[in-house]
Design a binder for these strands. Structure first.
Lengths: 153, 153
DNA sequence: GCGAATCGTAATATTAAAAGTTACGATTAA
DNA sequence: TTAATCGTAACTTTTAATATTACGATTCGC
C-alpha cells in the first residue's frame, strides 16, 4: 500500500496559508505540494467540514485558515482526516475462528493500541503554532548558513 | 496499500509448530494460515536466516522451531522480517527542499519515533511462550463455554 | 537408483489502498 | 458576461503486499 501523506500535506498547506494574505487557490497549493488541485480540494474539504478552514468560491477565491494557529493540534487534523489507519502492520484475519490466531491478534492489538495512544498524545501536544516556530528556527539557521557562504566567497 | 500481515502470520505458524511433533510442511501451514505455500516458504525463510526455525527438505520435511518458546520475542520476529515499515502514515516528500515541509517532517518524525520505540519495547516484552499462555487461557475459556452450552441444551 | 515429497527461489500476476486525473456543474468577483 | 474558483463524481494510475506458477535441488523410503 502507499502510505497516507495527507496529514503531512495539510500541515504544509496550512503553514503556507498562515503566512499568506488572503485565500490561496487549490491550484497554487497543489503546485506547492507537488500534487493535484483536486487532491487539495478533497483533502482540505475534510478540514473545512471540521471547521478548521474556509473555502471561498469564484474568482479570487481559495482557502483560508478559520482558526488561529494556536487552536489546532496535529491530533485535530488527524481526526478531521477521518482518523486513518496508523499502522502498516496488521492481522492476517481480523476475526479468525482459530483460537491461536485470536490470541495472536489480541496480544498484537495491545501493543499497537499502546503505541497509537502515545502517537495521538504526541499529536495532541503539537499545535500549528509550534510547527511555525520550528519553521522559524530552521529559517534563521538557513539564513545564517547562506550569509556565511556569501561571506566566505 | 495492503497492510503487512507477516508478523501475524509467523506468530500463528510458530505456535502451531510448537504444538506439533516433527516438521510441518509449507503446504499444511499455508492451509492453516489461509495463504499459499510459497508465501510460507518466503516468510519462514527469513526466520530461518535469523536462526529461529529450521527447514528440512525432502519427503517428510518441513518447518520446525529451532529455539525454545521462551527465547523468541515479537521484536526478534519483527527484526527477522526485516523491520518492515511500521506506519501507514508518512511524508509527502522524504527530502523536501521547502523549509516549511522540512519542519513538518521533523516534528512528525519525533512523534512517530516515540510511538515506534514504544511499540518495539512492547514487542520485546512478549515471548512466544507468553502467546502460548494467552492461547491456553482462551482455550480453557472456550472449553468451559462449550461445556456450559452442552449442559444447557 | 527411482519416485514422491518437500524446500528454495525466480518470474509474473493479482489485489487493495492511496493518489492522480478528467470532466463538469455551481458560484462569485470584476 | 466572462474568467476564476470550489465541489464532486467517475475513472485511471501507482505502489506495496500478497498470490501464483514454474522448476530445480534435496531427501526419504523403497
Amino acid at each position: 500500500m502507499k502510505r497516507d501523506s495527507r496529514l503531512s500535506m495539510v500541515l504544509h498547506a496550512l503553514l503556507h496559508m498562515a503566512d499568506h494574505e488572503g485565500p490561496m487557490s487549490s491550484e497554487v497549493l497543489a503546485k506547492c505540494m507537488c500534487t493535484n488541485p483536486v487532491v487539495v480540494r478533497r483533502t482540505m474539504g475534510l478540514l473545512r467540514e471540521a471547521g478548521l478552514v474556509r473555502a471561498t468560491r469564484g474568482a479570487a477565491g481559495g482557502w483560508e485558515l478559520a482558526v488561529p494557529l494556536e487552536g489546532v493540534t496535529l491530533r485535530q487534523l488527524h481526526e478531521a482526516l477521518g482518523e486513518p489507519t496508523v499502522f502498516a502492520i496488521g492481522h492476517k484475519n481480523e476475526a479468525p475462528g482459530c483460537l491461536v490466531e485470536q490470541a495472536v491478534n489480541a496480544v498484537m492489538d495491545d501493543a499497537f493500541a499502546a503505541a497509537e495512544a502515545l502517537l495521538l498524545e504526541r499529536f495532541a501536544a503539537v499545535t500549528l503554532a509550534d510547527l511555525a516556530k520550528e519553521f522559524s528556527a530552521r529559517f534563521a539557521a538557513h539564513r545564517s548558513g547562506v550569509k556565511a557562504r556569501i561571506a566566505k566567497g
